[in-house]
Design a protein around this nucleic acid. Structure first.
Lengths: 198, 198
DNA sequence: GTCTATAACCTGATAGAC
DNA sequence: GTCTATCAGGTTATAGAC
């Protein structure tokens, strides 16, 4: 039952965010009523934290694994990561907006979630591995955050603006997917352009 | 008085978004009480639309003017636009998050606002001007949305993640500004890389 | 125009019966 | 465990006095 609730809550929270989601709405989706919800997760806050942890865990690890395959050429590694994110976001188009919204509503939340999920070591390994490659001159030496600004910015932008763009230019779902397939290659080549030594 | 209200409401709305802003909070900031607010703008919705229009008008036009200066080299044009946005966002760090959040909460809102503000012609001119340059072979021929995905993605990403990054890596305001000054050049060079013919 | 008072509603949360 | 009933608090919006 707890899992049924988390699964339903996940959908609603991702769609509307914490603030605009009410307990009664989740209860309706699950098929029970408000007090029953409060039995399983005492407060809305506790419930959201459970859902948020669930989501973060499904996003973070796969990416950092790919970052560390140093035997592969850069373009290959970038392509895998970009592929993974594009698939994830195509299946969950509102996930990028959700993450940004909650990151801004409560910046501590992500930090606490990351700490409690033991993914911090995986992240550190990936960071130092990349930094080494830069020091060795195999990659251009840039601040690591720039890599993330560039890659994530390009990755999430189409999804952050999806609804508005589709309405403004009467773009169909098929058109969107066609563009995304091309866009994927642009992201890879731009990230490589940022990291490759001339 | 209406202006005083819009000015105050603008601050609060940009900071917290539509959903998490209450009329009483705005009233407190202005220095009057709730019912007085409802006298000037009958509903919260009407008031928000006024504020939103005010914001859009202050963002859009300057950019498209710069896009059309075809006598200038590409890098010069891009640099001006990027400069303008970085200044705007540095002074209003939560503006990018605000725009994305409201764009997703109510996708029709932006469309209606744009229509009512008569900026649609300016946008169309800029678009066709760019498209011509692409057809003439002076710029690489890519879907126009890709230019926006790339430029805006890179422009807003540092600000969307500012609070979280500063807390996660205990980054000071000075450090942030230092990185932004360097990042600006990266954005320009990446956008040029996207548009320049080989 | 600006106030006080109040209506009507929705929220999260709890107590207690079954 | 899941329900009904209820509480306390906050929200937008309005009516009516000054």
């Amino acid at each position: 039952m707890e899992n049924r609730i988390i699964k339903a809550a996940r959908e609603v929270f991702i769609d509307k965010g914490y603030a605009e989601t009410s307990m009664s709405e989740i209860a309706t989706v699950v098929g029970i009523n408000r007090p029953a919800l409060h039995y399983y997760f005492r407060t809305k806050d506790k419930m959201f934290q459970a859902v948020f942890g669930d989501i973060v865990q499904s996003i973070v690890p796969a990416v950092f694994d790919n970052l560390m395959h140093r035997e592969l050429p850069l373009s290959e590694r970038v392509e895998r990561i970009v592929d993974a994110y594009i698939s994830l976001f195509t299946e969950n188009p509102r996930l990028p907006m959700f993450m940004m919204r909650e990151l801004n509503r409560d910046p501590e939340l992500l930090i606490n979630t990351i700490r409690s999920l033991n993914v911090i070591d995986t992240m550190k390994e990936a960071f130092t591995s990349l930094q080494e490659e830069m020091n060795e001159g195999k990659l251009k030496n840039i601040p690591l955050q720039f890599l993330f600004y560039n890659m994530y910015g390009m990755l999430i932008m189409p999804f952050l603006t999806k609804d508005a763009v589709q309405k403004l230019f009467t773009q169909s779902e098929e058109e969107f997917l066609t563009y995304i397939a091309i866009w994927k290659n642009v992201v890879v080549s731009q990230v490589c352009n940022l990291l490759e030594v001339q």
